[in-house]
């Protein structure tokens, strides 16, 4: 008997497919799977966050604000205005707005978990009339009414958690982006849909409160002036562009006589004026 080792042709035990082709096919498949999962999770989180009881939301919120200066005329004025808006917006009884006036230059206002609404002096000093101020408050209170803070947080946390399974640094970047920084405290960022929903509710409330929408659009003129110089692409921005928001208000407007605008109370300019001593404190 004769033994022999025949020459075995190449490629019997290996595949001839190019490894890069396999790599791109598999990566594309897995990445689109991840994208679909994240999309589903974020939709579910947005829908399910409604069912978190408001009392639980209050416990999540651990915002520590500086001691409020009660009894200041600006606080009294803001809380009475808030009270009117709460009724106009039909805020459920278990929700209570906790208003904070922050003496800082930031041209902003935001709503946070647990019914906190923060108004910055920087925005308030630029507003020309009470209608614009009420529009800010109504917009932020509408966020609270629609449970936007907990919905945003829920969605953001779910997305960040899912992403950190793929890449821990991208996950934490997303988390940092959700908890965007404002001048003072970390605030939540809302999606454009949430902003539009809050605008719509605020417009309704303004109708109920004043019977017209005159002056409300001045808020967006102020915001627009503040972002001048910065490029504004709606696609990249969480807020709808100011122009679009003004158009929405003008659409909803029924009475356009400009003389029924409610002025700000006398002394308002002094209440929200920059205090020299507060400037010294910050240093």
């Amino acid at each position: 008997m004769e033994y022999s080792n025949p020459k075995i042709p190449e490629g019997i035990n290996t595949s001839s497919e190019h490894p890069l082709k396999e790599f791109f096919l598999l990566s594309a498949g897995v990445l689109s799977l991840v994208a679909v999962v994240i999309l589903i999770l974020s939709l579910l989180a947005d829908k399910l966050a409604h069912h978190i009881p408001y009392s639980a939301e209050k416990n999540i919120s651990s915002l520590k604000f500086e001691q409020e200066i009660k009894g200041q005329p600006v606080n009294q004025y803001l809380s009475s205005l808030t009270h009117h808006i709460e009724r106009a917006i039909e805020l459920p009884d278990d929700m209570k707005i906790k208003l904070h006036y922050v003496d800082a230059d930031t041209v902003n206002a935001f709503a946070f978990l647990g019914g906190h609404v923060v108004m910055f002096r920087g925005l308030m000093e630029k507003l020309p009339n009470e209608n614009a101020l009420a529009m800010v408050l109504a917009h932020e209170i509408a966020h609270i009414k629609h449970r936007h803070p907990i919905r945003s947080l829920g969605r953001g946390v779910v997305i960040a958690a899912a992403l950190s399974l793929v890449s821990s640094s991208v996950g934490s970047d997303v988390m940092a982006n959700i908890m965007g920084k404002t001048g003072y405290v970390t605030a939540l960022k809302y999606s454009r849909d949430h902003e539009t929903e809050a605008d719509d509710t605020a417009i309704q409330a303004m109708h109920r409160l004043y019977g017209h929408l005159n002056g409300a659009e001045d808020l967006f003129h102020v915001l627009e002036a503040n972002t001048k110089g910065k490029p504004s692409f709606e696609f990249f921005s969480t807020h709808p562009l100011s122009e679009k928001r003004i158009q929405r208000i003008q659409k909803a407007q029924t009475n356009t006589s400009p003389d029924n605008i409610t002025p700000l109370p006398t002394g308002y300019a002094q209440w929200v004026a920059k205090k020299p001593e507060s400037q010294a404190d910050k240093k």
Binding site: N13, T14, E22, F23, L26, S27, G29
Partner: peptide, 25 residues
């Protein structure tokens, strides 16, 4: 690293781990 990554992706969807075949061969 590339082969291992490919094999890891294969772990998710299943199928022939082609990147390891030439290695073992």
């Amino acid at each position: 690293f590339f082969k291992r990554f490919l094999a890891g992706l294969r772990n998710i969807v299943g199928g022939r781990v082609m990147s390891y075949e030439s290695l073992v061969d």
